[in-house]
Computed example of a mutant assay.
Amino acid sequence: MNLLQFLLNVLWIAFGGIWMSVAWVIAGIIMAITIIGLPWAPAAFRIAAYTLLPFGSRAVPRAQMTGRDDFGTGPLGFLGNILWLVLAGWWLALCHVITAAMWAITIIGLPFAWAHLKLAGIALWPIGKIIVPANA
């Protein structure tokens, strides 16, 4: 992580990024409490960490990184993403979009708005994604 990414992450946390990370942790806890949601809890916790420090990392399809399909990138991953979308994805994405709209009002907030929009997309379809350094 370079100095600019570090500063952006510090500003992100200071100006509200921590709250969206907490929302992801809450979603993960709710999923972990239920028997049905347990398979989605690890993805929620991984994305909570990514939401806490989004600058310097990116989410890519796991099949793109490994070169092969696996449990989360095949038909079961598709079904898992549909269930995630219905159970938790839509409200997390909505929170990210609302926060992005608030950040987009200012020119200084545009990088934060863009980060929230990327996170909103991940909130809708997280299964089968992996978080990697931005330069990977």
Rank of each mutant, 00 (worst) to 15 (best):
A93F: 07
G89A: 08
Q5W: 00
A48W: 11
T106V: 11
H96Q: 15
A43F: 14
I29P: 02
V10F: 02
G89D: 08
G28R: 05
I130F: 00
V86S: 01
T34H: 03
P126F: 07
V60H: 04
W12H: 06
T106Y: 02
W24T: 06
L119V: 04
A136H: 06
A123T: 05
L76H: 00
T66G: 04
L3Y: 01
L11F: 14
V10D: 01
A41T: 09
D70W: 01
L53F: 12
W90P: 06
L38I: 15
I108P: 04
A32K: 07
R62K: 14
A41E: 13
W125L: 09
M20K: 07
A100H: 09
V132Q: 08
A63C: 09
A63D: 15
P39H: 05
W125F: 14
G17V: 09
P111G: 10
F78Y: 13
F15P: 08
L79R: 00
T106R: 02
G17W: 07
L110A: 09
F71S: 12
D70K: 01
T106C: 10
A27N: 02
A120H: 06
L4S: 02
P75C: 01
I105S: 06
S57D: 03
Y50W: 15
T73F: 12
A44C: 12
L94A: 15
T51H: 09
M102T: 12
L92T: 08
P61V: 02
F55M: 04
G16L: 07
F15K: 03
F55L: 03
H116C: 15
T66C: 05
A49D: 09
L92I: 11
I33L: 15
W103Q: 08
L8I: 00
F71L: 13
I82C: 09
A63Q: 14
A93N: 11
N81S: 11
W24D: 05
K118W: 08
A100P: 09
F112E: 04
W84M: 11
A59K: 10
I127M: 14
I107P: 00
L119R: 10
G80F: 01
L4A: 10
G17M: 07
P133E: 10
R68P: 00
L94V: 05
A32I: 06
A63S: 15
I131N: 08
M1G: 12
L52T: 12
N135P: 00
A136Y: 03
I98M: 13
A27V: 03
R62W: 07
F55K: 04
T73P: 11
P75N: 11
S21E: 08
L38W: 13
L3S: 06
V60E: 15
L8R: 05
A134F: 00
L110S: 07
A104L: 11
A63M: 10
L3R: 06
A88S: 12
P133I: 00
W103R: 03
F55Q: 06
H96F: 11
I18N: 07
I122P: 03
L4M: 06
W103S: 06
A32S: 13
G56D: 00
P111K: 10
L94W: 14
H96S: 14
A113S: 14
M1P: 04
A115T: 05
